[in-house]
Amino acid sequence: MEELARRFGVYLAHKMPQASNIEVADVSRIHGGASRETFRLNAAWDEGGHRVVRPLILRRDPVASLIETERDLEYNAYRAFHPTGLPVPEPLYLETDLKWLDRPFFVMEQIVGCAAGAPFTPDPYGPLAEKLGKQFWTHLGHIAAADPEKLGVSMEPVAPDESWKRELDKWEKVIDEDELCPQPVARAAIRWMRRNPPPPAQKICVVHGDYRTGNFLFNPEGEIKAILDWEMCHLGDPLEDLCWAADPLWGFDNKERPGGMLSRAESLRLWQEASGLEIDPKGLRWWEIFNSLKGLAIWISAGKEYQSGANRDPILALSSIYPTDVHNRVLAKELAALSKEARA
């Protein structure tokens, strides 16, 4: 960590020529999404006759990751949403020149005095669940309501009737490339989704891509202070994020209490109120199935990374065990019921 601190100090000196006596201390690696190496650190420097101290987060590209993502997408999402009042950390620097830290990285504000809930527990937020749940679903509604053009995000455009296909193609390709064994449930899901496409998106919005329990920070008073891990953000159907957040995996297998916070009905109501959008039941069902399939693709990819030796982070191994099991069960149950329904 000393070498990383030294090199990062050199980088800060380059970015802040007005600063002197730059010190980088307390560097420690933290778990912050399986697609980037994340470090917490404190930077201090002299500027304008004062000593400035700033806790920062450094997110560096790994050698191999859970899922390949573009770091500029995540950085630009923080940059777009930070001025809107949505709780996200302030992004500071995006660096693609390898000379500084060997791999691309970005730097953002560290949110101090906060915690993230553990996703695989029956009651991740205890007495704060209701208060956090109201904010959680409302913030997601606000993301859906935001106009991508006004936000100024630079993401691949997609038509309202094409977003489902683009996402399905993308995750099917991940399964094609990374499966270590045949996946009959995933393949059945893909075929069902292609035979039963959802209605066109009501609007195209920024989709966070991994909005869920464990991906936001809250303080002891129960206020959400930061929505994190925008690594998979893209333009698409707002129902995609809604259904990922409500996926049973993040509610300890309990579909009726998504994310372990509020009832399903209340969660969806809050989202509708904040987004100004209606939930089409057919679309909801399609995107629910899609998200369990997307989850499977991610866990399959994690297993491949671990098995091949490309990345031996234990989170990749665990990701390919328990979440795979949950999503296979969720999908099998849902698809078996749909099959019976179609034959009736």
Binding site: P184, V185, A188, I321, Y322, D325, N328, R329, A332, K333, L335, A336, S339, K340, R343
Partner: peptide, 17 residues
């Protein structure tokens, strides 16, 4: 088709963690 789903439901349940 129904028998295949019965098999798959049994398989995912047997492999449950």
């Amino acid at each position: 088709e129904s028998k295949i789903w019965d098999f798959l439901l049994g398989s995912v349940e047997a492999r449950r963690f």
